[in-house]
Structures are given as C-alpha cells and as structure tokens.
Design a protein around this nucleic acid. Structure first.
Lengths: 145, 145
DNA sequence: ATCCTATAGATAACCATTCTTGAAAAAGTC
DNA sequence: GACTTTTTCAAGAATGGTTATCTATAGGAT
C-alpha cells in the first residue's frame, strides 16, 4: 500500500518547507504508513522505535507536528481519547468506536456545501469545520447487547 | 432569560435521576444560565463561587458532569481549548474564535439527514456526530489583517 | 433526633502533551 | 578537512485540564 506522496516527493516536501528529513522523522512517517488503523502518538512511538531504536517519545510528538504542518499527515481528535494520526490527507471522515477505541474511515460521505451553509449563517471567518463521529464497531456490537 | 427547564422541573429532573439538588449544583446551573457565552469549567467555578462561596473547583466539575448526564446542559469540545458548557440543549452548532476563544451559536444550520448518510456508509452503530467549527470572530477580524 | 448514604471540600494524582536542557549531529564557511 | 554556527535530538521535568481519593458533612428516610 503506497501513500499519496512518494519517497522523493517526501524529501522535496521537507526541503520546500525548510525542514530536514531526518531518520527519526522518516521512521515516524513510515510507521504511520504501515499501520493499519489510526494510531495515537504513543502507538506511533512504539512502531517507530522498532524501526529506529534511537527515537524518543518527545521526538515522535515533534515529528508528528512537523509532518502535520507540511501536510503529509492529518491529526484527528475525539474527546476522551488521545489525538489519532492519519496518512490519508484526502478529505474524508472517520468514526471511533467508544468501546474498543478503533478508528475507521467512512467512505462516501462528504460535507459538501455544508461549509457554505455555515459561512452564510455566521459572521465569523470560518477556518475549519470537521465532523466528530462516534459509535460502536461491528465487533463490539456482537460482544454484548 | 429563562432556560428551557424551569425551577420545579429542575428539582424533578434531579429526583428522577437519583441525584439530589444541592445548593452547589444549583449555583453551578444558575451561573451557567446567567452567563452570556459558553464558559469553561474554570469560568463556571468563578461565577458559581460568587453566588455560593462554599464551592470548590472539583465540585464544579462533578456538578457539571451530573448536569450533563441528566440532560440539563451540554458539553462541547474544541481541541486546544478546555471543555465549554452550554445550557442550550436544543440541537445546534457553535463556532469558536481561534484568537479570543469566544464561542457563539450558529443559527439555521442543521446536520439534517447527514446523520442518515453517515449511518448508511458505516457498519458502526453511530451514537453521535457533531460538527467542530472554528474561525475568527468579527471583532478579531477588524483588529488586524 | 438518628441513622444512612450521597455529597462536598481539599488535595493529590493523572495523563497526554509540551517545554527545557545539554549534547550530538548537520550544515555552512573558509 | 577543520571550525563555527545552527538545527535536531533524547531524557526527563513541567504543564494544565480533569479525575480520583479521603475525610468530614449535610440531607433525607425512619
């Protein structure tokens, strides 16, 4: 599974943004790309450390923030849960299971011109609007009533 | 300005839920009802303390959680900001100013059958879907470019 | 009034995240 | 290639909103 941005493009993206592509930052990005779900910083840290043992948790946080800033990853927040990171930077929505904490993509749902509606109904200069969706995943549904 | 739930109804709501309506909890609710904006727990604490000096911050947190549980108030979360509380429990959306941290209602915007769309596109049992909207308020817009 | 349970207050603990610090590495210079 | 400057790193301390703990107290039922 290959991300939207290829290897050389990654290096180029770092250069253009004035950041250097260090081995730690690469380990963080690759850990994120190989992860199935939408890991937390702690989970990324564990995965990155297995690739490059010279990575500290603080470095992972900093790397994640750089990666987000240059647009290679996205951070998503649900209440009662640490920030989750996502290599899919295409516009989409995710749902989080309130029982097992899994996060999954919801395909085919688009905020569409909702943003326009919002803009029309507030004098604010709207900079961001995102959906926070929670529910119970199929596995947890079958586990009990 | 009178909330959706009147005084007697408040007492009744507490009783039915198995909670007692203490003076502290009343102070918290009234502080929230008289507040203009959408205060944080800390702000509610300050306002409640002016009504009833025998209120501790921890009690305010507990009272807010009880009030939310019995449906008298709503909690809303934005990242980079503490939880904000709202006496308006009717379905509506709020926008937060990223500069001055003010929160305001957005009238006339309804998620409508968006929830239905979401339900159709995920096997999850969707329990909540809410919009997190941020922007810059008119006052802050005029303050600088 | 008395007993019993829920609640309050004060303070310590929590936990994800950020900051700080000195050291190491990288980049730029001659 | 050695030297200087700048950036980055790792480890751990600090932060801040929130929650838990523990003892004392207050309300409601009998």
């Amino acid at each position: 599974m290959v991300g939207a941005v290829e290897r050389d493009e990654v290096r180029e993206r770092f250069r253009r943004s004035g950041y250097t592509l260090t081995s730690q930052r690469r380990a963080v990005l690759e850990a994120l790309r190989d992860s199935e779900g939408h890991p937390s910083a702690e989970e990324v840290y564990l995965a990155a450390k297995s690739r490059n043992p010279k990575v500290a948790l603080g470095t992972v946080y900093q790397a994640l923030s750089v990666l987000e800033e240059i647009g290679l990853i996205e951070a998503k927040r649900w209440s009662e849960s640490p920030v989750r990171y996502d290599v899919n930077t295409e516009p989409h929505h995710d749902i989080r299971c309130t029982r097992c904490d899994a996060v999954e993509e919801i395909p085919g749902v688009d905020l569409g011109d909702f943003a326009a509606h919002i803009r029309e109904n507030t004098p604010y200069d709207v900079t961001s609007a995102s959906l926070v969706i929670e529910g119970v995943c199929p596995a947890c549904q079958t586990q009990d009533g």
